[in-house]
């Protein structure tokens, strides 16, 4: 059986908000290591990779690997019924037809349980190799969100170029062009999460669809910083770390010159 108790139930809402615009269903894989999900969007252009490590739960029990196929839209509806301060417990049997969500209010004066039907999802899992990135950019997640939104107002595709001087985001649309350069700032008075850091072994440049990058920024409430990893001619990874728990990562295939 599987049973996991999460003290910060609001975290589940944030995780679901970060994927609900991209996928409509997915297999949550319960394993002794934690709860994970890998799923492609319907156009198979991007890949979501979520990990919530077992250590991040107050209580975690998983005797064997269990794929828990869930409709994300329905899951969002159910988790919305939890208060943002509620403690959430997820429970299911080894071959579940249903998953139970137990919500306990912080003061323990209200307990709710919801049961949701599971579904069988045939999805192919991709093997994402442990990659050494040519360029890694860490920046405030709110700034990345703003930047993607601004770029999307002008064009459909953003070209991201990383050099040791900084990261340049460029786009072109019917009305004109836009360029935004974010420079690594010196580690002065700023808090770590307010800094922009660039690590590169060589300059990298590639084009990506803004529609997807904008969807990824729905994960902004999960982390004060976002990390972009690039390798020439490979998908970009956009990572939001979840403190003491794991991550939400998005991989987006580049646009290639025809």
């Amino acid at each position: 059986m599987f049973e996991a108790r999460l003290l910060q139930g609001g975290l589940l809402k944030k995780v679901l908000d970060s994927i609900k615009d991209i996928i409509t269903e997915g297999n949550f894989d319960c394993s002794p290591n934690g709860l994970s999900l890998q799923a492609m969007d319907s156009s198979h252009v991007s890949l979501i990779d979520i990990l919530l490590e077992s250590e991040g739960f107050e209580h975690y029990r998983c005797d064997r690997n269990i794929p828990m196929g869930l409709n994300i839209t329905n899951l969002v509806k159910m988790i919305k019924c939890a208060g943002s301060e509620d403690i959430v417990t997820i429970k299911c049997e080894d071959k579940p037809d249903n998953v139970t969500f137990l919500f306990e209010s912080k003061d323990n004066d209200k307990i709710s349980d919801f049961e949701m039907k599971t579904m069988t999802i045939d999805d192919e899992h991709l093997l994402v190799p442990d990659q050494t990135y040519t360029a890694v950019v860490k920046m405030p997640s709110a700034e990345f969100q703003r930047l993607c939104r601004d770029m999307a107002a002008i064009g459909d595709t953003v070209n991201i170029s990383v050099t040791k001087e900084g990261v340049r985001f460029s786009t072109t649309g019917d009305m004109g062009t836009a360029n935004i350069t974010v420079r690594p700032n010196p580690s002065g008075d700023q808090k770590e999460e307010e800094r922009t850091e660039v690590q590169i072994t060589e300059p990298v440049s590639a084009g990506f669809a803004l529609r997807y990058l904008n969807s990824f920024t729905k994960a902004t409430p999960l982390s004060p910083t976002v990390t972009l990893g690039m390798v020439p001619n490979l998908p970009i990874v956009v990572e939001y770390k979840i403190a003491d728990m794991g991550h939400v990562r998005y991989y987006l295939a580049p646009k290639i010159e025809d």
Binding site: H44, H125, I256, D258
Partner: peptide, 14 residues
């Protein structure tokens, strides 16, 4: 003109 690649063309299937 740029062409959108699919994600599965970059990663092996498990």
């Amino acid at each position: 003109k740029k062409r959108q690649m699919g994600i599965a063309s970059f990663f092996a299937r498990k």
